[in-house]
Nucleic acid binder design. Structure first.
Length: 270
DNA sequence: CTCTTAACCTGGACGC
DNA sequence: TGCGTCCAGGTTAAGA
């Protein structure tokens, strides 16, 4: 489910329900997701008030005076705020019971997510080496151009590397490269500044648009689902291998780059 | 450093 | 129906 727009939509949906709420109780139905759940979640969180709901990359941070819960949704995780007595479903792994009778509930079939702890005033190791946010001013074509010099990886892998820029997953990487007219397997280090300027603009435009749409689909925080409805309709290449390009009509090609399926138009993307 | 590959895990789609 | 195979929105760790 979650690429950056989905995580940001989750953050915006959670914020009004969580801000100022006290965590009454933590229920862990298993000890481990991708990694063991941080012991501080159970030891320090009960009794704490949630002061902020932040996002960095695809991580969510729930801030308290004692520290921050650091949550990643992996491939299949979702967070929802529900009435306390809501029956459990399969893969409901964690509850934060709140002081207003609601519960923040984490569901994750594949358990690729993680729930860790960041002490006050520190930066968790997982966040330490991350690149800039794609929607920030730190991220632009000049930056991509500079960072890509001397690199031989396919540009799609380069763009999906969180040390370069965070939040660009398999779907948006494919879409952005299409919009920028760049073939996904082209060597990152051999792409011109002019083309990186187009690519950075495409990334920003697509992510901003998806966040805007995600807001409408998931605002109420009740819809379970994977892909938000807006998605499939607007995708130009992702998931469309073999189908005609919506711009030129050519048959879209599909290959694997770094073990991820990659679709592109052989005529529009060079 | 840079790059590639395997690994974590469940469920759904598809072919036989 | 049932079973085997492949694929899925992410990311780290290990090895070359």
């Amino acid at each position: 489910m979650p690429e950056l727009p989905e995580v940001e939509t989750t953050r915006r949906g959670l914020e009004p329900h969580l801000l100022g709420r006290r965590v009454r109780q933590v229920v862990l139905r298993r000890n481990t997701l991708r990694w063991p759940i941080a012991e501080q979640i159970e030891r320090l969180l009960p009794g704490q008030t949630l002061h902020a709901v932040r996002r960095r990359s695809k991580y969510l941070l729930l801030d308290t005076d004692a520290g921050s819960a650091l949550w990643h949704l992996g491939m299949s995780g979702s967070l929802r705020v529900l009435p306390q007595q809501t029956p459990l479903r399969a893969h409901d792994h964690v509850d934060f019971a709140l002081d207003d009778g609601q519960v923040l509930r984490y569901n994750d079939p594949r358990r690729f997510g993680c729930l860790l702890w960041q002490a006050p005033g520190t930066t968790h190791q997982l966040l330490a080496g991350l690149g800039p946010e794609p929607l920030s001013q730190d991220f632009d074509g000049d930056y991509l151009y500079q960072r890509s010099r001397g690199r031989s990886v396919p540009v799609k892998s380069f763009l999906m590397n969180a040390a370069i820029v965070v939040g660009v997953g398999n779907i948006y990487a494919a879409e952005a490269l299409f919009e920028a007219g760049i073939s996904p397997q082209r060597e990152a280090g051999k792409i011109s500044l002019a083309r990186y300027l187009r690519l950075a603009d495409a990334v920003k435009r697509i992510l901003a648009n998806a966040i805007e749409r995600g807001g409408t689909t998931l605002r109420d925080f009740i819809s379970p689902d994977g892909l938000p409805g807006y998605f499939e309709q607007e995708l130009l290449v992702y998931g469309r291998g073999g189908e005609p390009c919506k711009v030129c009509g050519s048959r879209l090609k599909e290959t694997r780059i770094a073990q991820r399926s990659s679709v592109w138009c052989p005529r529009c993307q060079l």
